[in-house]
């Protein structure tokens, strides 16, 4: 198993990874941080909706839905 870096939309449903980087403005980063998504946190993909729909993830027992474009700016490390 290798560690690889992908963005959140590329994760498989049920897969767990570690958040590595959030790209974007300060407001966006801070908002995600305060919702529990920040570097070095464990993140599990719950589901992804068709046609570039929102991505649902779970961090600390809490589920969050993130729009596709935003999810692309969240980089995670997974083992595959």
């Amino acid at each position: 198993m290798n560690k690889i870096n992908i963005d959140l939309t590329q994760m498989q449903p049920g897969e767990t990874g570690i958040v590595k980087e959030i790209q974007g403005g300060q407001g966006f980063v801070r908002k995600l941080q305060s919702m529990g998504v920040r570097p070095e946190k464990k993140i599990t993909k719950v589901s992804s909706h068709f046609w570039r729909g929102p991505q649902t993830v779970e961090v600390d027992n809490i589920q969050i839905a993130i729009g596709f474009g935003m999810a692309r700016r969240i980089l995670v490390e997974v083992k595959r």
């Binding site: 908002k31 995600l32 919702m35 929102p54 649902t56 809490i62 589920q63 969050i64 839905a65 993130i66 729009g67 596709f68 474009g69 935003m70």
Partner: peptide, 10 residues
């Protein structure tokens, strides 16, 4: 249209 970013409560 802006993107959704929302918490889904249990």
């Amino acid at each position: 249209s802006p993107e959704i970013l929302v918490e889904i409560p249990p």
